[in-house]
Design a protein around this nucleic acid. Structure first.
Length: 208
DNA sequence: GCATTGATCTTCT
DNA sequence: GAAGATCAATGCA
């Protein structure tokens, strides 16, 4: 859990994220993550500007859960890594549901096949039932309702550019299990919609 | 299949 | 005021 974030991040692949809720237990095996450094060389990180009220969890002790609200609609989950004060974290991007699929399906009615249950950071968070009430939870504590467990490391790990950002896109800080179906939709930078989406900030001004 | 668009919070300019 | 670590519904081929 300690060390450079781009070294710790791929070591989380294959780990299990387990959530215990009244409606049931859900376990997920991580297949895709992204590293975000707080050390200043990473302008795409929320920690780049320092400990704002939103990102202050990132500067806390390692093993904590950083949850943030994205695009006014979605919640995304990160694991804080590195020592206190550094501000490095790993974004949980995708995984495979291994326990409690029925509970996850109930939370994600839009998912038509199992692969879609946790394909993408906001979907993963929703399938696990993680929300703002979980901010700052200790993922390493046995009594925590959201926990991180060691699992089987993937046979092969791939690395490539991060998705959905416009700065520091050259850093190969996205890591995924090679061949995992739950990450296939995220094509390595450039070929997909990631790189070429001009002026997508529409709406709003179209009032008659 | 693929491209477009709405939703609407946090932070910076 | 504008952009962002996004998703899902819609329209068209």
């Amino acid at each position: 859990m300690l060390g450079p974030v781009d070294v710790v991040a791929p070591s989380l692949l294959g780990c299990w994220v387990v959530t215990d809720r009244p409606e049931g237990q859900v376990a997920l095996r991580l297949t895709e993550v992204e590293a975000y450094s707080g050390e200043g060389q990473d302008p795409a990180s929320h920690a780049h500007r320092g400990p704002t009220p939103r990102a202050e969890i990132m500067f806390g002790p390692p093993g904590r859960l950083y949850v943030y609200f994205s695009y006014g609609v979605h919640w995304c989950a990160n694991v804080v890594v590195g020592p206190e004060g550094r501000g490095s974290a790993v974004l949980l991007r995708a995984g495979d549901i291994v326990l409690g699929e029925e509970v996850a399906r109930a939370r994600r009615p839009a998912a038509r096949v199992a692969r879609d249950l946790a394909r993408g950071p906001a979907r993963l968070t929703q399938a696990l039932g993680i929300g703002p009430y979980d901010r700052g939870l200790d993922l390493l504590a046995p009594e925590s309702p959201v926990r991180l467990h060691h699992g089987s490391a993937p046979a092969t790990v791939s690395a490539g550019p991060r998705v959905g950002i416009s700065q520091a896109t050259e850093l190969p800080w996205r890591f995924w299990e090679t061949g995992a179906p739950s990450v296939s939709v995220f094509r390595a930078g450039g070929t997909g919609r990631g790189g070429k989406r001009p002026g997508r900030r529409a709406g709003q001004d179209g009032a008659p």
